[in-house]
Computed example of a mutant assay.
Amino acid sequence: MAQSDMPTMRSRRLGAELRRLRLEAGLKVNDVATALECGQPKISQIENGKRGIRPLDLTTFFNLVGVDDEQYRNNVRRLAKQIHKRDWWSGEGPMLDDALKDFMTLEVDSELIRTYECSVMPGLLQTEGYMRRVFATRWTPEKEEEMVRVRFKRQELLEGEGAFRFRAVIDVPVLHRIAGGRHVVIDQLNHLLEMSERSKVTIQVLPLEAALPMEQRVPHYILSQRGEPPVDVVWLEHMSGGTLLEQRSDVAFYLGLWDELTAAAMSPKQSLDYVRNLIKET
């Protein structure tokens, strides 16, 4: 990937992490530039995700800011190597917006994804009939076809030996708010049962009577990025795109919320029984 194609999600994550380390060490941009024997603009470009950093410079930087943890160093080195990686959607053009590309980058780099949904079915668990109902309300027929193709391509990440683990907590109204005819509803509910048979997929339903504090909860993803150890980040979805949270305090908050949600939700077995009963009643 050429420097002109940057910043990317990976290069921005790398730059943000290097900036955090610099600030925590109490250093200025000029201090890092002096240690790496380069100009300040280069350091600014690295921190803004507009260019990468050479392995030797990265080692010098670690020594400068006092990072000794070899596992952590290797995780950052791994990210630094990947910033030039070209994914299958890199050449898709303007049909895919930047927010979706950013999220797909996080998705493909994950070994575990946890998601909470309170309004729509998680995208990786949607049938074609369901996703078309979602897309048709927002986009042109041409864009709809493209989005269906892309979503099917994303769902392939749940297949094979290299599949990541996927855990979903679905608020129960989502199961009762499936638009379309009876066949769309039945197909989607049956699809949930089929997906739950995969060893790396876990589905829990959050009942109306769930014992949870009266707080507003937004749809979100916790993505564990591959590494030793994995690095957790949070993605918040909204109508016009998404927001990435990487600050430790933010991530810790959503990890705590996830524990509350899974504890309050039905067990995986109870959840599937609920879906089966719903199919019978439909």
Rank of each mutant, 00 (worst) to 15 (best):
T137W: 05
I186G: 07
R167A: 12
E159V: 00
E215I: 11
E128I: 11
R154F: 03
H191N: 13
A99T: 06
C118Y: 07
D171H: 09
Q155T: 03
H176N: 13
K153Y: 08
M121V: 14
I113S: 11
E145P: 01
A179E: 12
Q155V: 07
L192T: 01
M147V: 10
T127H: 01
R217P: 10
L100K: 10
A211N: 15
A136V: 10
E161N: 15
E194P: 04
H183W: 10
E128G: 07
Q188W: 05
D98C: 13
L189P: 10
V134A: 02
R154I: 10
E145V: 08
D187W: 00
R138P: 02
V148A: 01
C118F: 04
Y221F: 13
R149Y: 02
R198E: 06
R217W: 00
L96C: 01
A210R: 12
R151V: 00
L112P: 08
F166R: 03
D187T: 04
G123Y: 09
E145C: 05
L100A: 03
L106C: 09
L193H: 08
L189F: 11
E144C: 07
L206Q: 05
Q155R: 01
R132I: 04
D187C: 00
T127V: 08
Y130L: 03
L175H: 08
V150W: 04
E142T: 13
M95A: 15
M121W: 07
F164R: 15
P122W: 07
G160K: 05
V108C: 05
T127I: 06
S199T: 15
M121A: 08
I170W: 03
D97Y: 03
Q188P: 06
I203D: 14
A179I: 08
R154C: 09
T137F: 02
D97V: 05
V134R: 06
M104N: 13
N190G: 10
V174Y: 04
V185Y: 10
E156C: 09
V148Y: 08
A179M: 14
M121F: 03
T115K: 06
R133E: 14
K200S: 13
K101Q: 14
A179K: 10
M121K: 02
E209G: 12
F103C: 00
D97G: 06
E144K: 02
E159Q: 09
V201F: 13
P173A: 03
R217S: 08
G129S: 05
R198L: 13
K101V: 02
Y130G: 03
R132Q: 15
V150T: 14
L125I: 06
E215V: 10
V205E: 09
M214H: 14
T127D: 04
H220C: 01
H183D: 15
A211K: 15
G162V: 08
G162A: 15
R217K: 08
I113F: 11
P173C: 03
G181L: 07
L212W: 11
T202V: 10
V134E: 06
E107M: 09
G160V: 04
V184I: 14
V184C: 03
M195V: 11
F103R: 00
D97W: 01
E194V: 13
